[in-house]
Amino acid sequence: MNLWEIFQNIDRRVWYVLLLVSLFIPLVRPLGLPLSIGGEARDVYNTIEALPAGSVVIVSPSYSPGTDAEMWPQHAAVMQHLMRKGCKIIQVSLALESVMYAVRAIEAYAPKYNYKMGVDHVIMPYKAGLDVVIASMGRDIHALYTEDYYGTLTSQLPLMQSISGIQDIALVVDFMPGNTLVDYIKQIGSVYNTPITGGVTGVCIPTMMPYVMSGQCRGLLGGMRGAAEYELLINSPGSAIGGMDAQSLSHLLIIVAIALGNIGLVAGRGLRKGGGGK
């Protein structure tokens, strides 16, 4: 086997090990590669920045562990921003596993900003039904959520008493790797004129772009990069910025892999052709 053939037939496990290494090193020692901030992330930031203190915002973390590496940093960054602005936060979940992220966000940041349960924020229990839940949230949020996640009657919570319905919500921020952001736009945004924004996984960016361009979605955080951009915007570096360096190296690795395969192919072909000619 000559060198070119070796290049074409590297064992897949070699790539797996290299991939793990390329992802691990930047996590321990960030490289600090440059990162420009895209317009979509800035739009989300500006939308929240423009909210007056005390505005009530619905945050809808509806992702599950499969995608939390991308979604959690977005969620965390936006929660910090909202708390810094003094907004009241109602967290709702449309996926079974996602309530724990709502809890995690509160445990991580509420003490720092002195947020009190029931007064400054509420966590609602999971409700099955996706777009149906979103529609009924618009129709009558009090009827949909009679108890919060901890079993307290929502009618006894000062924050819930302060709103009469969806018209008192200043913004909805959704974090979901699926279609719920579109559902929020259709069922709440276009029906009640409530501003909608949110974050999605990298895979879903193309699906969301038409809504962002038409202004139905006020900006967008896309994948880990969106989260990293937001961390830069709020000046609070977190796991996404470290993750982006890991992204860079791993992408580079794939490019090297493709290059090696092709060098082997082209050079090998050249050799064979040359040999045949003689």
């Binding site: 991939l19 793990l20 992802l23 691990f24 996590l27 321990v28 562990p65 499969g66 995608t67 939390d68 590496a69 991308e70 996984t201 990298g202 895979v203 960016i205 193309p206 994948g223 880990m224 990069r225 796991s239 993750g243 890991a246 992204q247 791993s250 992408h251 794939i254």
Partner: peptide, 28 residues
């Protein structure tokens, strides 16, 4: 679409590594 998805998939491994070395071994 392939190129665009690489990032999302890498994030998944990053998530596992952050768990293993952050929450379990606690060196991150």
């Amino acid at each position: 679409a392939f190129g665009n998805t690489v990032m999302a998939r890498m994030s998944l491994v990053i998530g596992r590594l952050q768990f293993l070395f952050g929450q379990w071994i606690k060196i991150l």
